[in-house]
């Protein structure tokens, strides 16, 4: 990392007695896609709201593009683009009016606005919808418009708070491509998400955040490697006894209970270890019911670090149960 765009040190935020952000520190390098991955209510949105100056910084230090979030809020605002978690479009304005309004809010000159709006419409492929009211756009188009709007002022950092929430799988894929394109053009991206696959696919660096703290941080493959090379899932007739047998075997880095079976992490090629494991268990008179071997996924990483799963938060489900924190 040659230059850091965001520097955060000891950030804390409290709502009454509840500590939503509990001491987080990190730096984001220029051109990175940096993500916060965590369940709803983990403190992601609170952290992002502090960085974009919507919430007052209570404790800690934060610097964006060289400006202090606490004392130079206006400079920070000029340097960043934001795509909020919820749709923040006036349904009764046209696509062009939305962008024009944004350009004016940020004090862009008329020729600047004209040029940029044309570019943005081209980029997010909404040229044909220029004079259409927002309420007539599809969900994907609205999201594209919001991302385009966030980019209008050529921000140094683009903040994306749950950018693909409520979008269908196909639109999500296209949105990811789109975010990559924006990043390739040099914009640093700060992303929050509670979708494993999104964090895995997009990020240069993932930070798993839970209970207001960063509990793991690294490149996606680094995080997965922490779990060993392969994961073996077993269901046997006597899980506790099988567990104690496996723990003593070579090339096993961890054993834990999972659902009706046990989860084994290996630090060697699982295809070679699995037959050994089964043999050992059978020799002890325990029968094996189910076997599964796989490479660790981001879900496994998450479970490993937080001790729980994010089952209810699969993409495409209605975001009705979603609450902002």
């Amino acid at each position: 990392m040659s230059t850091s765009i965001i520097e955060v040190e000891g950030l804390e935020h409290q709502y009454g007695d509840f500590k939503a952000v509990n001491g987080i520190s990190f730096t984001v390098g220029k051109g990175e896609i940096f993500s916060f991955l965590g369940p709803n209510g983990a403190g992601k949105s609170t952290a992002i709201n502090i960085l974009i100056t919507l919430l007052k910084l209570q404790k800690g230090e934060a610097c964006i593009a060289g400006y202090d979030v606490r004392t130079e809020a206006e400079k920070v605002r000029e340097s960043i683009g934001i795509v909020f978690q919820e749709v923040t479009l006036d349904r009764d304005m046209t696509v062009w009016e939305i962008l024009e309004f944004h350009g004016r809010l940020y004090g862009m000159t008329r020729p600047d606005r004209k040029e940029r709006i044309a570019e943005i419409l081209e980029l997010v492929k909404l040229g044909g919808q220029k004079d259409m009211l927002v309420k007539k756009l599809s969900g994907g188009m609205k999201r594209r418009l919001e991302i385009g709007r966030g980019l209008m002022t050529r921000p140094i950092v683009l903040f994306l708070d749950e950018p693909t929430i409520g979008l269908d799988p196909q639109t999500r894929m296209r949105m990811w491509d789109y975010i990559r394109t924006v990043n390739d053009e040099g914009t640093t991206i700060f992303l929050t998400t509670h979708y494993m696959d999104e964090a895995d696919n997009l990020s240069d660096r993932i930070n798993i955040i839970d209970h207001g703290k960063i509990i793991a941080s690294g490149k996606p493959w680094e995080l997965k490697n922490e779990l060993g090379q392969d994961l073996v899932y077993l269901e046997t007739s006597d899980n506790p006894r099988a567990r104690s047998i496996i723990t003593d075997l070579v090339s096993i880095s961890g054993v834990s209970d999972k659902g009706k079976g046990i989860l084994i992490t290996t630090n060697d090629d699982g295809t070679k270890i699995l037959p050994l494991i089964i043999e050992e268990i059978r020799n002890s008179g325990i029968s094996v019911i189910t076997v599964n071997l796989k490479k660790p996924s981001m879900d496994d990483v998450f479970v490993h670090f937080t001790g729980r799963e994010l089952r209810d938060d699969k993409p495409g489900k209605s975001p009705a149960t979603f609450r902002r924190r």
């Binding site: 974009i52 000029e78 934001i82 809010l105």
Partner: peptide
Amino acid sequence: LMREIMASP
């Protein structure tokens, strides 16, 4: 929309 306005300069 107020968030957009409030977060702007």
